[in-house]
């Protein structure tokens, strides 16, 4: 793969002013993730991994340092351009799913397409196809509160994938799920990664989850403490 890395962080810092005390969430992070990688960011809570994830996802801005996404210096972009970037190049998956609870699965998956300026039959067709890929086409009319946690997370992945993003960012995607559902969700990420070629970055504190990825980045106290390939990678086997 030629060209600059898809994600390039240089000396990123993030300071939260909290009741007069400055909390240093990131203390100079240098990180590169190439197109097509599947990486896990590990660390205890408070290690800064979610903060890093938010900055990579253009949901928050760094205090200092530089961040390039797909060759673009994100700090130069306006709020509306960031919104468009999140819509087209990024897909988010959250620990608590963050679906609209009273809207149908289909509508939840359609939303990013509406914000992309699309409308009509194309939107429904693409949303249904995305639901199909996560095995939930038959649940299109169900609402999230009628679904299991694993199903809701699959809807969230369909929503993240529906606009064909460059990167999927998942923040503790299995944090609220049992072991079997967690494995299934990781299997879907692996499937998206191998079949669609999407770059996947997963934040987790569970080593069992990290081994589904190719690369394991470890954070401690706002800095990167370790960065190594996963040697015995777990591959989810549907039907196993």
């Amino acid at each position: 793969m030629s060209g600059p890395p898809l994600i390039q962080c240089q000396e990123l810092t993030k300071v939260y002013p909290l009741k007069g005390v400055a909390v240093h969430a990131l203390r100079g992070v240098d990180l590169e993730i190439a197109r097509g990688e599947m990486a896990a960011i590990m660390g205890a809570s408070g290690s800064g991994k979610s903060t890093l994830m938010n900055i990579i996802g253009c949901m928050d801005r760094q205090t200092s340092g530089r961040y390039h996404l797909d060759g673009v210096d994100v700090s130069t972009l306006k709020e509306s351009e960031l919104a468009s970037l999140r819509n087209k190049k990024l897909g988010f998956v959250f620990q608590r799913y963050n679906l609209l609870p009273r809207a149908s699965a289909l509508y939840n998956v359609e939303l990013p397409l509406f914000y992309a300026g699309l409308s009509g039959a194309e939107v429904t067709a693409r949303a249904l196809a995305a639901l199909e890929r996560v095995g939930l086409r038959d649940f299109a009319r169900h609402r999230p509160n009628q679904m299991s946690g694993g199903q809701q997370q699959r809807v969230a992945i369909a929503r993240a994938m529906v606009n064909n993003p460059l990167v999927i960012l998942a923040d503790e995607p299995t944090g609220a799920l049992d072991t079997a559902s967690s494995a299934e969700i990781m299997g879907i990420f692996q499937q998206m990664h191998s079949e669609q070629g999407v770059t996947v970055v997963i934040v987790t504190h569970e080593p069992d989850i990290a081994v589904y990825c190719q690369r394991k980045i470890t954070m401690r106290d706002g800095s990167i403490a370790g960065d190594e390939p996963v040697i015995h990678r777990t591959i989810f086997n549907r039907g196993a």
């Binding site: 996802g57 949901m59 709020e79 509306s80 919104a83 468009s84 999140r86 819509n87 087209k88 988010f92 963050n98 679906l99 609209l100 939303l111 990013p112 914000y115 992309a116 929503r159 606009n163």
Partner: peptide, 16 residues
């Protein structure tokens, strides 16, 4: 507020 966060995460601008 969470809904607004979700909408912005998936591509809604402040104006939207």
């Amino acid at each position: 507020t969470r809904e607004i966060g979700v909408r912005m995460a998936i591509g809604a601008s402040k104006k939207d």
